[in-house]
C-alpha cells in the first residue's frame, strides 16, 4: 500500500478542522468540564459545556493532540452545540458506532455533520481512540453513561 490510503483519512476537511479548529478555547462560565487522556500518547483533551434548560448552549475544548484528535474534537463541538442533552448523548453514541465501521442512517449521519466522514477510521483501527477521546469527554460532561 502506498500513502494513497492516507488520503481516505486525512481528507481536506479533516486537515482544515485540525489546522483551524472550531471552538478551541476554555469556557470561563462552563457548567461542567471533563478532561480525558489518551493513555498511549499522553495527549489530553478538556471539553467544556454550558447547559441551559437541558440544552447545550455552548461547547468548547482545549488540549493537544494529533490531526485526528484535534479535527474530531472540532467537529464534535460543531455537532453537539445547541442539542438537547439526550440528543447529544445519542449523537456521541452514533459517532462511536460510526468509528467501529457500523453504517448509520442518513439522519444520524446528518446530525454528525463533518464528523460523519470519520467513518474511514474503521480502516485505521489503531487511531479510533484518537478520534473518540473528545466525544467520550463530551458524553461524560453531559452526564451520559460511559460504556
Amino acid at each position: 500500500m502506498s500513502l494513497n490510503k492516507l488520503n481516505q483519512l486525512y481528507l481536506a476537511v479533516v486537515m482544515d478542522h485540525a489546522n483551524h479548529p472550531h471552538h478551541k478555547s476554555s469556557l470561563p462560565d462552563a457548567t461542567k468540564s471533563v478532561e480525558l487522556h489518551n493513555v498511549s500518547c499522553g495527549d489530553d483533551i478538556r471539553v467544556f459545556i454550558k447547559t441551559k434548560a437541558d440544552r447545550i448552549e455552548e461547547i468548547s475544548f482545549t488540549g493537544n493532540g494529533c490531526t485526528i484528535s484535534q479535527a474530531s474534537a472540532s467537529m464534535m463541538t460543531d455537532a453537539l452545540k445547541d442539542l438537547t442533552i439526550p440528543v447529544a448523548i445519542k449523537t456521541c453514541d452514533d459517532f462511536f458506532q460510526l468509528t467501529m465501521g457500523k453504517t448509520l442512517t442518513s439522519k444520524a449521519k446528518k446530525a454528525l455533520g463533518d464528523a460523519a466522514i470519520l467513518g474511514s477510521l474503521a480502516e485505521f483501527p489503531a487511531r479510533i481512540k484518537c478520534a473518540t477521546l473528545a466525544w467520550h469527554a463530551a458524553k461524560e460532561a453531559v452526564g451520559g453513561e460511559i460504556k
Binding site: 500500500m1 502506498s2 500513502l3 492516507l6 494529533c66 490531526t67 484528535s69 487511531r127 484518537c130
Partner: peptide, 14 residues
C-alpha cells in the same frame, strides 16, 4: 507533525 500521524503514515508503508 504529531507522532501518531507520522506512525500511521509509516504503517501504511509497512
Amino acid at each position: 507533525l504529531h507522532p501518531h500521524d507520522v506512525a500511521t503514515g509509516l504503517d501504511m508503508l509497512g
